[in-house]
Every structure is written in C-alpha cells, then in structure tokens.
Amino acid sequence: MEKLHFDIQINAEAIKVWSVLWDDFSFRQWTSAFTEGSFYQGNLEEGSIIKFLDGKNNGMYSKITKLIPNQEITLLHLGEIYEGVETPRDWGEATEKYILTEDENITHLQVEIATSEEFKSFFEEKFPNALSNVKHLSENQL
C-alpha cells in the first residue's frame, strides 16, 4: 500500500472549507480535477456508504469510518462501480482521509491516502489541482 500526503493552506475558516469539500455544488466543481461530472450519492454519516460517480455512473463506493464535521473524515474504499453496478474489490486498507485544522481563520487541509500502486500516479497527478480548486472556491465563494 502506497501512502500519499497532500496539503494546502487556505485563507478561510474550516467550516467554509468543509462546506466546499462536501456541499453538492462545490463538490462537483473541485472534483472536476479528477473526472468531469463527478458527484457523490449518500449521507455524510459515520458508518454510511458513499458512492463517488461520474456522469456515466462509473466510480467507486466507500464507507465513512470516521467523521468529525468540519475537522475530519476518513473513507475506506470498498469497490468499483461500472454502469451503476457495484463490484467489491480487495484493496485492503485503501483509505482517504481529510483533516482540517484552523488557526486564526486560516485552514490547513491535509489529505492522506493509502492506495495501491495502480492508482498512485493518478492521485499524484490530479490531487494538487483538486486542492487548488478547493482553495480557490473556499477563498472566493460567498
């Protein structure tokens, strides 16, 4: 399992950054860095399953294993979705963790990813642009 770390400083309160990360409209905007038309289905509740999809109903599904609103969310990736059909995958402890810490209205957003070798280059290429999108939206949206 490969461990990847990404982080960015954002001139906005953590509650604003969290909103950009998980509100439907802004989620679609910042995740376009990965795949145009990205969205998610499900509830942000610990223990629930979230589906991350593109416009063709392809993507993956994950379980929220930890959730502290405005501070941290950890996702355990369980499988792929192709044309709306879920296929479990044995990815082991493939996780994605978002950690927000705030100091005087500046939020430090850290993303920790445990992934297989097959997805490493994808994340390394796409995540910096995605975090740049989060920063821009957090600092410029009303």
Rank of each mutant, 00 (worst) to 15 (best):
A94D: 10
R28V: 00
D103A: 12
D90W: 06
V17M: 01
S138D: 02
E2Y: 09
E72V: 07
N105C: 09
L4Y: 08
S116V: 11
Q71V: 09
L67E: 03
R89A: 05
Q41K: 14
T107E: 03
Q9P: 04
S19C: 00
N140K: 13
K51V: 03
S19D: 10
K51M: 05
T115D: 03
M60Y: 12
E80A: 12
K51R: 15
I113Q: 01
S62I: 06
E96P: 03
T35N: 11
V111T: 13
K3E: 14
S48A: 12
L67W: 04
E2D: 14
S62Y: 01
S116H: 10
T74G: 00
E80H: 11
Q110I: 10
E86S: 10
K66Y: 09
I99P: 00
T65Y: 06
W22F: 15
S116G: 14
V134W: 01
N11K: 15
S138L: 04
S32N: 14
I68L: 11
S26Q: 13
T101I: 10
E36Q: 14
H136T: 15
D7T: 11
G42V: 05
S116W: 00
Q29T: 09
L131N: 04
A130K: 08
E93T: 12
T35E: 11
L75T: 07
Q41W: 00
S32I: 08
E125C: 06
L76G: 04
L67N: 04
T95Y: 04
G92S: 07
S62V: 10
W30T: 02
E139W: 09
L142P: 05
G92V: 09
I113S: 02
F122E: 12
N58D: 15
A12P: 01
E86A: 08
D23F: 09
E86I: 06
L21R: 02
H136A: 11
P128F: 07
N58K: 07
K51T: 09
S38E: 07
H77Y: 09
T35W: 09
E104Q: 14
N140M: 08
K126H: 13
N133C: 08
I49M: 03
I113H: 03
G47R: 10
L67K: 05
F39C: 07
Q41T: 13
V85C: 01
E102Q: 14
V134H: 04
E13R: 10
T101D: 07
I64R: 01
G42N: 07
E96H: 09
N11D: 14
W18H: 05
A14D: 03
F122M: 13
F52I: 12
T115F: 01
E118L: 07
G92Q: 08
F127K: 04
F6V: 07
N133D: 09
K56G: 06
A33L: 04
E2V: 12
H108N: 15
S32W: 08
L78Q: 15
E45G: 06
W22Q: 04
E104T: 14
T95G: 01
W91H: 06
F25W: 08
H136M: 12
I49T: 13
F39D: 05
P128R: 09
S62C: 10
F52H: 12
A114L: 10
L142R: 12
L4G: 03
K16A: 02
H5M: 08
S62G: 06
T101A: 08
F52Q: 04
A114P: 03
N105Q: 14
V20N: 02
K66M: 07
D54I: 02
A33Q: 05
N70E: 15
F127I: 12
T107C: 00
F34N: 00
K3C: 00
